[in-house]
Design a protein around this nucleic acid. Structure first.
Lengths: 227, 227
DNA sequence: TTGCATCCCAGACGTACGTATAGTTGTCCT
DNA sequence: AGGACAACTATACGTACGTCTGGGATGCAA
């Protein structure tokens, strides 16, 4: 799932209090240095690269972070790198900086989810504000992702049968209906249902249903209301 | 809620098959005319204005639509008009067109949710593609909104007590707990709970809980699990 | 072979849910 | 004064849920 990260384990509570890291990809060495200094001056950690390729070859720590990305780069362009990161499932918020940007570039970047797009020269504070917004966005995304990952790992501890029962129960079927659907005795469904509640740590059916919602679990045989 | 619309009634199924309308706000009269012709040529309905004020003074039909908006306008600028529409709770997808745009304008527009930002001159097809994307976005937003509105209107048919019971039941409390919470007899909660299921047209508790999710209903006294 | 997990079921018991019947209050509107 | 509706309760009964005890069967790995 995480793929390119040196991940700290699936269901872990992670290092929530770790300082955010600002990645910088900028080919101009003096610009790169001044960006690094800028972020250091406000106490942020920085990892800078001269090209997209360099960053892809490095190990990316799995902590709150964002990316300050020059649009014009040797090799892969900033915009293409944005696309590539999305393809690799790396959802680091991106702030573009550019000396010679135009509107179509800006539109493309923003459509693909960039946090901001700054033209050089820009004021330091502009960039810092954008970085704060970006890290905040990453934090929220990670919080949400963490919850899903925890539920997911619990769900995976369920046996196939238990998962099947969970889906149908969450769809609103009665035990006897679940039993009929799966070709089981009702008592068996009751037992598995109990296992599901324990393993998922659901205190009530309401809990369990909300969990299936955040997990995106849908029974194949629903007939819902919801209109 | 709908405010400035000549709304067709809260819970109605609306006119789903009505053709989409493209609103145009553009002060240059020849440009306005050519945009109108362009959209007419592909069979779309168009309503064009010379300024934001004119559009605000008109009655806006409550159907699938989008707005093609010039950035530079007499009076309220296009960008300010975008903000104003959001403030008025009019969520029409916006496509900006401009002759003299710059990157900060583009960023602001896209951050506030614009579908696209096109610089003149642009190819007709570019604009048409953007309009198709915009109307599609509006259609989806309306579909989702319709579901919420239906549920909302059902929820409003509940008496205050029934609403209170619904919240606590959906939070996962047992009837006896709901009763204690509200200072009622358990039998009373059972009765109201039955009313809730009927009035909300929920076939199962699972249904009801999902409804509270899409309505964003939270009990004030939860103690959830969900981590 | 032993151990363990998964899958499956029966009987039994206590609790929770849902609804029907039948009532008492009170308020607001006509 | 009468009617409609909200709020509230009791008794009663049938159904659904949840868990316990106590099994059976497979299959896989140590």
């Amino acid at each position: 799932m995480t793929g390119r990260f040196d991940s700290p384990g699936e269901g872990s509570n992670a290092k929530a209090s770790t300082k955010a890291i600002v990645f910088v990809v900028e080919d101009d060495i003096s610009m790169r240095r001044s960006l690094t200094n800028l972020f250091h001056s406000v106490g942020m950690d920085v990892i800078a690269f001269g090209s997209a390729r360099e960053m892809l070859q490095s190990t990316i720590p799995d902590v709150i972070s964002c990316l300050v990305l020059d649009v014009r780069l040797p090799g892969l362009s900033g915009l293409d790198y944005q696309t590539e990161l999305a393809r690799l499932n790396i959802h680091m918020p991106i702030i573009f900086i550019t000396g010679h940007g135009d509107i179509p570039m800006t539109v493309r970047a923003m459509k693909e989810g960039a946090v901001d797009f700054l033209s050089k020269p820009f004021r330091d504070q502009e960039l810092l504000d954008a970085v704060v917004a970006a890290t905040e966005r990453d934090r929220k995304r990670r919080d949400a992702q963490q919850i899903v990952a925890n539920l997911q790992s619990r769900f995976e501890t369920l046996s196939p049968r238990e998962q099947g029962v969970m889906k149908l129960v969450a769809a609103g079927l009665m035990n006897k209906q679940v039993a009929a659907e799966l070709g089981l005795a009702e008592i068996t469904v009751k037992i598995y249902r109990g296992h599901v509640m324990k393993k998922m740590r659901a205190r009530s059916l309401a809990d369990l249903i909300r969990m299936t919602e955040t997990l995106g679990i849908r029974a194949n045989r629903p007939e819902q209301t919801q209109v």
